[in-house]
Amino acid sequence: MRLDPGSAASFYPPKFKKLCIMEYFIQQFVNGLTLGGMYALIALGYTMVYGVIQLINFAHGEFFAAGGYVGAITLGYLSGLGYMQTHPVLCLSAAFVFAMAYCAYLAVGVEKIAYKPLRKESRLAALLSALGMSIFLSNGMMLTQGVYDKIYPGEMFQGRFDFGTVAISYLQIMIIVLTALLLVGLNILVFKTKIGMAMRATAQDKTMSALVAIGSNKIISLTFAIGAGLAAAAGIMYGLYYGSVRYDMGFVPGIKAFAAAVLGGIGNITGAMIGGLIIGMVEVFGAGYLSSEYKDVFAFIILIGVLYFKPTGIMGENIDDTRV
């Protein structure tokens, strides 16, 4: 086990080292929880859409980036008006609501244009259409918002709690709490309400659910909207956490979140949450203990390993031949 030279542990004399290793571990654990929560939010969009129409929505990473951008725009506007200094929490809530609504709106339109006409065609056609949409959206963001990183106006939320050498920033607490709230809310929506029942019914069998008067088009739109809204929330968190957004930022987190969805068992909502947390933890611990240069590789290796050894994932049911 090798520690990074810049880490907290290397500043302390050897007799404290054991303690510091523990604290380093806790610090990494908190970081992993933050990151894993974001991945879980993105992964839910993939897994829900896959559950309903068996399509990998390549443009999902772009919904995440768009959410980050709209959040930055809203926060910038509000701080330009001067509200950020007086009511930061209110402004942040407004940014979340606006970005989630915007991405839901974007996703519903994208589904109608690029995916709905291809629902009966081959999988390859829908997949290529999704890929084209992803390139189109990310370049649309580049053209409207610029090639360079957009700095997130989040100075308001700086500050942290210190527990010895473990530091937990307010942002991390905010992200973890908000993620937990969104996940619980989604679980209630899917497993306790009529709409959620309709969604699960559509995912199981479109024809049968249509026979009991569930409009599958509406449910598919709703699924896209919810998934994109969650991705938008993750986009704002990501922007606040790393301090900036970029037009192509959706690509790598998108694949990692997909890896999380596959790890949890694609189509399974609880699985996506667990998978997101695992991918976040693996990335953070891998970067902390093994190699920070190759931190992106770990998620890909997990993805390939899961698909090779257990394509149904941790929580997935048996997938029939048409799905894999």
Binding site: Y69, V70, I73, T74, G76, Y77, L78, S79, G80, L81, G82, F98, Y102, M141, T144, Q145, P153
Partner: peptide
Amino acid sequence: PMLGIHADGT
């Protein structure tokens, strides 16, 4: 939202 909302509050 991408083109019309500016950071100076306009």
